[in-house]
Write a protein that binds this DNA or RNA. Sequence first.
DNA 1: TATGAATGAGACTTCATTCAT
DNA 2: TATGAATGAAGTCTCATTCAT
Lengths: 216, 216, 216, 216
Amino acid sequence: MDKSEANGGKRSKTRIGAANIDRILDAALIEFAHSGLRGTRIEQVAEAAGMSKTNLLYYFRTKDELYAAALTRTLDIWLEPLRELDSAIGPAAGLTAYIEQKLDYSRRFPEASRLFAMEIMQGAPHLKTVLAGELADLVERKTATIKGWIAAGLMAPVEPLHLLFTIWATTQHYADFSEQIRTLTGKDLTDEAFFAQTKAALVGMILKGVLPRSPG
Amino acid sequence: MDKSEANGGKRSKTRIGAANIDRILDAALIEFAHSGLRGTRIEQVAEAAGMSKTNLLYYFRTKDELYAAALTRTLDIWLEPLRELDSAIGPAAGLTAYIEQKLDYSRRFPEASRLFAMEIMQGAPHLKTVLAGELADLVERKTATIKGWIAAGLMAPVEPLHLLFTIWATTQHYADFSEQIRTLTGKDLTDEAFFAQTKAALVGMILKGVLPRSPG
Amino acid sequence: MDKSEANGGKRSKTRIGAANIDRILDAALIEFAHSGLRGTRIEQVAEAAGMSKTNLLYYFRTKDELYAAALTRTLDIWLEPLRELDSAIGPAAGLTAYIEQKLDYSRRFPEASRLFAMEIMQGAPHLKTVLAGELADLVERKTATIKGWIAAGLMAPVEPLHLLFTIWATTQHYADFSEQIRTLTGKDLTDEAFFAQTKAALVGMILKGVLPRSPG
Amino acid sequence: MDKSEANGGKRSKTRIGAANIDRILDAALIEFAHSGLRGTRIEQVAEAAGMSKTNLLYYFRTKDELYAAALTRTLDIWLEPLRELDSAIGPAAGLTAYIEQKLDYSRRFPEASRLFAMEIMQGAPHLKTVLAGELADLVERKTATIKGWIAAGLMAPVEPLHLLFTIWATTQHYADFSEQIRTLTGKDLTDEAFFAQTKAALVGMILKGVLPRSPG
DNA sequence: TATGAATGAGACTTCATTCAT
DNA sequence: TATGAATGAAGTCTCATTCAT
């Protein structure tokens, strides 16, 4: 997932153009994630990208176009881990790896996580079709994987979708609600020890639950 | 958590004033949750509350004041379930009740959940002090409860904060990401059966995990 | 010049009404003098008068009506000293008395002076007819007096109007520009010594000039 | 005192920008002087400057910024004559020249005089620091000059500050109260004869007074 | 006489976007 | 590619005034 890929057909014939587009999208992600579509001013993005507003508009003709481009990148980041969920290695290793990777993404791309979250919370106006298409397809394949594991007796008969939702919710929470988490723990995922502790805690809870194993 | 209480010193000397303030705050919650602070127009709230923009501004002098009032209400809703987490009944019943009640709140007040989430994701500019004060205090008391259960051998030695985060994340997810959930399942928490199923799934996963109990 | 007289036919049948009207006009004078017609809010006057905006509007139906009333009072104050300029006592005593009384009015009614000044500076939209009528008549009579003195060889042949303008300008200056004067001298007319000093200085300059008498 | 200088760091990188700023400030001076800060609409200034309101706001982001810029120019105009008061030529010629130049400024920049007056009368909120700094310094130097003349027996022992106030008051009066003056005389300083007559009258009164020279 | 509620006409300001160079 | 200039539509907020009690 190299971020300099997704230049969706933009004006980038020259090297400098491509570089500018990357700088813009980096800035846009941060600003949109922080203030939302309406709350972000184009000038603010331009400033963060180190260029004039007018020049930014040379690359992205409208605010919506810019937002859409930033969002597309975000979605790529969001989908990546799920794609790698592999049926071959079984639920214990497979889910552990998935949780760990999702959490790693929350650490590395917290703004992407937040931008995605805000978009969904506002009714996903720009993402509806992708959710119903690409995401739904992918999810269907992965739930089949999980169902296979259940059928093989490798895990408890949980509803696969709820499992996915739980993994998404918990791992993303550490990016999306980092402010709250920082207030209560004094740490966030950028802290190595806290990251490791969180990883262990989530894997433990989701795989084994919080109640004692031995009866009582 | 009766919503008609929080008239924090507003112009509500008469009955009609208090009623208007309630209508305004109801509308404000919905609109702000949907479009954010910047994205919501005052007129939009006024219309939803069935009054003129100017009349709304008679009660709340600025948009920020209105937003702050709506947010305060939201926070009350958010904190309520946690306050009821009771040490006496033990982890199995206690956590089950807490999860169920949080989920019930997600069903009944999805907009409040979303508004709270958006505020936190933007860095909690209006809520920071409350988070560090009231919330931190409450959380400290409740983590003590959980630690007590662990010390008594009633539950596995999980880090209490991560447990709370997990419960918050999962239950709120069904409100905050309802659009995505609706796209993938065709349902949301307003569907009785789906609500029951979700409740069971979350309680099951968090209490017992997803791996089979008997080493299988 | 008792200020409780000029209630120009206002609703003041009761004692309390008359008292309110006085309080309002006192406040209006101060506020209008400080911020001008447009710059003054009705509520500001009401507050200064210790009543609600709506109640003030019971006495003066519009802002303009209130302004006109305050201005009329002001004009009375302004004209008073000139009326007393007396031909019988000759220029030395007469002009001295006039200057002293004008300066005394600047000390006692600085807001009235300022309100009058602002109104004139903006083109006297509310005062034009009075200026051209009442004031012009009065001025004509007084310039005749001065001309008489000149004809009698009692004073130098100065243009009477310029003399009046000079007296008005200098005496009013100490009220209107009191801020500047306070900055440069640390004092204003409320300081007894400064008042006396100013009086002597003005009388001296206007009557005798600043150059040495004996052919220097 | 060339008015096209004071572009205090504004957006004026191009020639067109500088020209626009000048046109705006010219218009602003007139409008503010006539209607005050609150009473003047931005659109009104824009119209007078021959551009759209939004374009004006491109150069001056707020009304206050525009007002401050106009006021600064005004102050420059106001201070100019005083700077030229010269000790070398003695009181008769020096004061005559000063009075004449002040009066000339009243004729050429009546709006600047009025704007300055209104600002002072409202308590000089935007000018306080400049008055206490630049103006106070300048005044101190000039009063020293006058004191020197008095010590040399070249003029009567008047308090220099009162002399300055008298000159300011009288000369500015013909600009600030021109409406009243026009009502009473039918003329103003734009009338050549009236200007000359006024000049002579003021110089005469201030230098020699109104009482007869011979045996007083 | 007094006040809370309601309104409409403004006025300021922001901001995405277009134009011209 | 880049930027200064210009604009129009929108949105917030103010304030005199009216209504109802």
